[in-house]
Design a protein around this nucleic acid. Structure first.
Lengths: 219, 219
DNA sequence: CATGTAATTATACAAGCGAATAATTACGGG
DNA sequence: CCCGTAATTATTCGCTTGTATAATTACATG
């Protein structure tokens, strides 16, 4: 009667860690960081709270792993957009910009997750390293795409342009994620193409992905 | 011996509310949202925890008030930069951009505070209204400054330019606040001026504030 | 100087937190 | 088929949390 111990299956370490991390990220996305308690995370992952401490030395270490996973996922989205050898440099850059300014990159839940970890950057060295590495990786990819346009080969100018383009994209990402209802579909992507184009002195619209939603002319 | 009740002074309601709000924001800035407990806030404000409930119906309401205060403070910083009638339109815009990309606007603590409240935007209608109103107010001010340049009077184009310039500024603000050591003094301001200028087709550098730190030429 | 009242403190409570430890059970290697 | 061991659950602990309520005290008003 009383002692019906819960049945379970032994999953691999990798699967369990991933399940716990995803559960934590889900909870942060839905209800903020304070909702991601040890008990809630375990429940969402389909295990009991004790198991968390079996795979992570502390809740903080789970948080670190979750932040790393979040950054990796974000990087992977825009990474997948480039590298097609059949594309011109302009096409690759335009695709990169558009991908960064659409779902699933632009997403209120992703912003909530990101913001939920940001305060740790100040106090946790490991987390700050992940954050810095992610930023630099993104900016460097952008810088390489800009360099391929061969409009300039002044390294300082190239770097400044990469920082500026990165900032436009980040800013538009931020606003689209924080105010999802304020922008029509692909409006952010079009503004991003125009702004990055203006900064670099290139018209990127002819090289944008075919499925880019054009501005509706309300005539 | 035992019952030495703590002495106190009666402050006005306004002063106490402000002290509690500032204490809460300080704690969030220093150690993240989870550090801003009722007890810690009261302690920092020099009162006992019960007083919080005397001025705020719940901790959530204090949080709402704190977010409003934070947004007002941020608005006030960049607001103070414009409105000087002795300045040309270009000077006002340049000053606005530079002010937004320097301390105290760019500040890791401010970013931490902002991020600490962002997750509430999704679930709290009042908070979302404040956030939307703040964004729109900032963007509209920018749009008015751009309109004064008289480069275009197409409303849709004006709006898109304002969104784009807002995004560059926000993105640079974000990166400067999240990675304070990655940028030389006023580097963000210079990149901001260059980018906003490129988007609008104006060279803003001749109109920048006199104290803008010029790029050091390492020749 | 007395008095009422609102600001402030003090105390208590139930719930939830992260962490530690002990008891069980699934499952692969003999 | 059994057995060891590691994965998983169960239980408990000490603390902290937000909130509620009662007791006090500062101060304005007369």
């Amino acid at each position: 009667m009383s002692g019906e111990r819960r049945k379970f299956r032994r999953e691999g370490e990798a699967a369990r860690r991933e399940a716990l991390i995803s559960a934590a990220l889900d909870l942060v996305a839905e209800s903020g960081p304070q909702a991601a308690t040890v008990r809630a995370i375990a429940d969402r992952a389909g295990v009991t709270p004790g198991l968390i401490r079996h795979y992570f030395a502390s809740k903080g270490e789970l948080a670190r792993a979750a932040f790393r996973t979040l950054m990796d996922r974000l990087n992977a989205i825009s990474d997948a957009a480039i590298g097609d050898p059949g594309m011109t440099a302009e096409q690759q850059l335009a695709t990169f910009v558009v991908t960064s300014l659409r779902p699933p990159s632009v997403d209120p839940e992703v912003l909530t997750q990101w913001a939920g970890f940001i305060h740790m950057i100040r106090s946790d060295d490991a987390l700050r390293s992940v954050h810095e590495a992610t930023y630099v990786a993104y900016r460097d990819r952008l810088e390489r795409l800009i360099a391929d346009l061969a409009r300039t080969n002044d390294p300082a100018r190239l770097r400044a342009q990469a920082i500026a383009c990165n900032a436009v994209i980040d800013g538009l990402w931020l606003e689209g994620s924080a105010l999802p209802s304020a922008f029509a579909p692909d409006a952010l992507a079009r503004i991003g193409l125009a702004s990055v184009g203006a900064i670099l002195g290139v018209d990127l619209f002819p090289h944008a992905p075919d499925d880019l939603i054009q501005e509706v002319d309300p005539t």
